[in-house]
Design a protein around this nucleic acid. Structure first.
Lengths: 312, 312
DNA sequence: ACCATTCGCTGATGTTAGTCAGAGGATCCA
DNA sequence: TGGATCCTCTGACTAACATCAGCGAATGGT
């Protein structure tokens, strides 16, 4: 799935390797020590994932990425310890529901405490100032690794994930522009199906968190439905989507990209400008459009050195 | 071993926990995927540790923290794959020496490449600027986690680690002061044995990387032999050692601390001043002493909130 | 009413990781 | 020279972490 760019060497690889080594050793070893309470670590994780609200077994399987049989066994072990109980779901009697017993809830509290202690054991030896810097640096690493984990995929416009994205997109547009948007106002992405267009969805841990579409016209192509989930902003994902779509357009020999947007989407407008788009007169009559932009795609230049054009 | 401070809640615990979760999942899962080349991960790690120069089995056992029997088995597996060969050491025929065959060296190169690819796969989706920030933040996390992993232990002055520290200390002192120091000039730490003093050594991964001693006199105590290994500077270890020794002194009811130092140890002098030590007239005639300092220990105040006094 | 599918469970089986006791040879020290 | 110690290996064992095939009950679509 991941195709590391091969030719231009990426700066910082040794530092990343060194980080990986240190962090997996230190954090990994400590986690075991703190969290395996006489129980296999997998069971502790499972206990945690069941959570106070309970969860159905199907979800747990997906979340933890476990084999159905294996999970079943783990559940029975926890059940034997009296920490959880598994009952059939009232809605679908094939589905089973795991939830914590009161003993299980107590154990979960203990686990929570142990997690805190693990974190404290890392912070405790440091001075006040060092702690602050460590926490800040960890937050930065976390943000950027999250950004890096986002994956772009070309998706068929009929995919439910596309509908989700468009729904969110128009929902926000309506809110920002203070114009109510009903279900029927939300268009499909059928006009961006295969030969005449592409629809790209950004995923994080399997959930769609952004999108962008490309629609070909005569002599130019149009970038449409640029959206990034509110919870995933600030990760540079919008720019990445745009770069990706531009790469796809370039690969198809397209030389001019256009797009329209709404005056209330200020961050988007800023991003388009900084990506080299210039404002042009209206070329469409989309309901929400207030600003129109255009960019000539030259040869791949500086700043385009990622995502490998049409790859991924 | 680690005793998390219990009462004053430590800031940043949730952030650290979140970081731990993300990093173990993301890096851990990726590591497996990239490095387990059809071989158990442990074997790959071992192959790596044997290294181009070869290593004797005893060292490997310590470095990887493996059981003697288990390691033996792993070695035989690698041997069966034709990746290493194990021969008896010429110096001590009990000891066995593992070294890579040419096939093993090639495999190690592949492993190296895979590690690079792992790192690249994290960096590749990011923009130039994000990469720079990620690498910088990783370096910061690594430095601070290393600092946090350093462990202070009270050690008997006869321990060979103490000799090592003093040797390094006087070596550097001689170099800085441009005055040759012979083996005989290096004193022992016998005057800091149990009831009349303490000697504290800082360890990182089992290796001594710093020290500080406390010697009790009438009416005051003296801090002596403050040293931090050149490779471990900038981690705040000097200050931590000093704080720790002050805590020990306080616990013994000592109210006045003195120390002498040499004009060429400028960082140390800076640290003493910032820790509240004030310059006083000479009180000793140590060969290298050029500056003398004193600090009155009051009640534990701000900035002393770590390491829990005499604990650890 | 039927069939395909979904869901969870069970049994069989395999690999990885790790522990423990002790054998056997080599070395060190008194 | 004789014990104590060191180093490695073997055999026996265990726990954790899976994978796979198939069963039986429930469900949804036609």
């Amino acid at each position: 799935m991941v195709t590391p760019t091969s030719h231009p060497p990426i700066e910082g690889v040794p530092q990343v390797r060194s980080f990986n080594r240190l962090v997996t050793e230190r954090i990994g070893a400590l986690s075991d020590e703190y969290l395996a309470r006489g129980r296999p670590l997998g069971a502790s994780r499972l206990l945690w994932e069941v959570g106070v609200a309970g969860a159905d077994v199907r979800d747990l399987r997906v979340r933890l990425g476990l084999d159905s049989g294996y999970l079943s066994r783990l559940l029975r072990n926890l059940e034997a310890e009296g920490l959880i109980e598994v009952v059939v779901s009232p809605e679908d009697r094939r589905v089973r529901l795991a939830r914590l017993t009161s003993k299980g809830r107590m154990e979960r509290v203990v686990l929570d405490r142990r997690s805190d202690e693990l974190a404290e054991s890392l912070l405790a030896p440091l001075s006040e100032g060092q702690r602050g810097r460590l926490v800040a640096a960890m937050a930065e690493v976390e943000r950027l690794l999250t950004a890096s984990a986002a994956e772009l995929r070309e998706v068929d416009p009929a995919d439910p994930d596309v509908a989700h994205c468009l729904h969110e997109f128009f929902g926000e547009l309506g809110r920002r522009a203070a114009r109510p948007v009903t279900e029927e106002d939300v268009p499909t992405a059928e006009d961006m199906r295969a030969p005449h267009g592409v629809f790209v969805v950004a995923y994080l841990k399997g959930a769609p968190i952004g999108c962008a579409g490309l629609k070909q016209h005569d002599g130019f192509a149009e970038v449409k439905r640029m959206w990034v989930d509110a919870g995933a902003r600030g990760l540079g994902l919008g720019r990445r989507l745009l770069d990706h779509v531009e790469g796809l357009a370039r690969a198809r020999g397209i030389e001019v990209l256009r797009l329209d947007t709404n005056e209330h989407l200020t961050e988007a407008i800023g991003m388009y400008r900084s990506a080299g788009y210039e404002q042009i007169p209206p070329y469409s009559d989309e309901p929400f459009a207030t600003h129109w932009f255009e960019k000539r795609l030259g040869e791949r230049g500086a700043g385009d050195d990622r995502e490998g054009g049409a790859a991924n």
